[in-house]
Design a protein around this nucleic acid. Structure first.
Length: 269
DNA sequence: AATAAGGGCAACCGCTGCCAA
DNA sequence: GTTGGCAGCGGTTGCCCTTAT
């Protein structure tokens, strides 16, 4: 027989999450880690479906999420990846550390789609609407656009090099807010056929889509930016959800640190 | 200042594949 | 081998905020 249902539909709360619910969920995962989601609501004292808890965590509460708009380089990467992978948002998100599939999907639908339409490019096919009119613009005007490969099997043969790309791109994420560096990085990736073949590969993602506890290396990264551990990171998150970031004088932090801690500082302040 | 319209985004819905029983 | 729950995914909805009138 199958398993027990993840939750009885009766008494399950829907709609926006409250700060209190967020706190409970964060506290629970801080204490117990990510276990089976179906058990989470009950153990954490939440009247939510496990699915809802997982979504809330992966799309909003995860401490490794970047917040804020996608950068130019990230946007370009999304466009290129979409040209190859289509609407497989989770695959695309796996190539963008700190970004969720939902976030990328939303950004695509609200920003990128319109931008491409404005440029006369079909966001579905990534082809110009009127090829003769835009022949001079695409694909040459699309600096990171690579010709389609007819043989996707090659991509799979190169998967073992994924780790290289991943580490290169991930390590760059600490400098996300430097557009020129990002562009250079993207250029260097895109000019490397082998790397791009790996990127277009449809198998093992470069970054595990599901969040996991940090490795020693990641902990080291956190230390380098002033965070001693993942727990500390989450503790900040909890505290700041209660009181708001400005109570902590976050203005003294740079964007990189803020991104790492999942906070946004309004430029107005 | 009030109201309508539009845009952005968080969250839900429903489907699929995997796997435990 | 079959059944049915779970996790993950992509599509869609609806609320809230901003902008225009």
């Amino acid at each position: 027989m199958g398993r027990q249902p993840c939750c009885d539909k009766l008494g399950v709360k829907k709609g926006p999450w409250t700060a209190e619910e967020d706190k409970k969920l964060i506290n629970f995962i801080l204490t117990n880690g990510q276990c089976c989601w179906r058990a989470v609501p009950k153990l954490a004292g939440l009247r939510r479906c496990g699915k809802s808890c997982r979504l809330r965590w992966t799309n909003y509460l995860r401490p490794d999420l970047k917040r804020g708009l996608l950068t130019e380089a990230e946007e370009q990467l999304v466009i290129d990846l979409h040209a190859r992978l289509g609407n497989r948002w989770s695959k695309i998100a796996a190539r963008l550390p700190g970004r969720t599939d939902n976030e990328i999907k939303n950004h695509w639908n609200t920003h990128i789609k319109k931008k491409l339409l404005k440029m006369g490019i079909d966001p579905v096919t990534h082809e110009p609407f009127h090829k003769e009119d835009t022949a001079n613009e695409t694909p040459s005007s699309h600096p990171n656009h690579l010709p389609e490969s007819d043989d996707n099997h090659h991509h799979q043969q190169l998967l073992e090099t994924d780790g290289i790309i991943n580490s290169e791109y991930s390590s760059s994420s600490s400098a996300e807010n430097c557009p020129s560096d990002e562009s250079q990085l993207l250029d260097s990736i895109c000019k490397d056929d082998q790397l791009m073949n790996c990127l277009w590969g449809d198998e093992t993602p470069l970054v595990d889509a599901s969040w996991k506890f940090p490795t020693a290396a990641e902990d080291n990264f956190n230390n380098n930016i002033g965070l001693s551990s993942w727990e500390e990171n989450c503790a900040w998150l909890l505290d700041c959800q209660d009181f708001g970031i400005h109570d902590y004088g976050f203005e003294c932090f740079n964007d990189i640190e803020l991104n790492t801690m999942n906070f946004e500082i309004s430029e107005k302040q």
